[in-house]
Amino acid sequence: MYTDFASVYDLVYAGKDYAAESASVTALIRERVPRAVSLLDTACGTGGHLRHLTGSFTAEGLELSTEMAAIARERGFDVTIGDMRGFDLGRRFDAVVCLFGAIGYAGGVSGLDAAVAHMAAHLAPGGVLVIENFHAPGEFFDGYRVADGWADGGRALTRLSVSELRGDVGVMNWHFVFDDGEETRYFVDRHEMSLYGDADFERAFAAAGLSAERLDGVLGRTVYAGVAGRS
């Protein structure tokens, strides 16, 4: 996962408004933790949000993909390679975020519980956890096909996406053709995303000692936020 996709990730998401999203996340954090200073972005990818969040916070990232982390590091971000379901950075943050549906990679409810527990364990007293869901069951459809194309300078890319619904897992099969100006490559990226609902987040947050608050309209997808106790 993300091995080949890393090289084209930013071309695919060139149209994503990371600045506006980061501003929304910052406001959401400030409403709950007015004096938040430090922030951890779990599953930070190539640092699209970190680029903007570093303006408001002392921010760093956690990323499972070495290829994605390498790109974020080249851009000057402090990124640790690790799995959101089992990481220990040895310090705590005023805010921990997990954006753009990356939580869908956690792998079922046990993965969600483990991820939320580890994120919560990295919260400073009174800190806030912010998770943007991928999709809830019922929001993801089987056999959905999307054709996309991008071109930028000497690079061009097409993506044919075909979805499969397997119980509570939404699978996106992405067929890429990428020309970087030197050569053309075809590769397939398969993303198996767990579909979580309100009850899943409520349970996982509660188990970690947080109360999950559902927020719609803040980001593209549903956001769950919870504030840690003061002690």
Binding site: R145, V146, A147, D148, G149, W150, A151, G154, R155, A156, L157, T158, L160, V162, D179, G181, T184
Partner: peptide, 12 residues
Amino acid sequence: AIPVIARDDGRA
């Protein structure tokens, strides 16, 4: 290099 895309009811 030029990307071209199209989609209809059953195909993409």
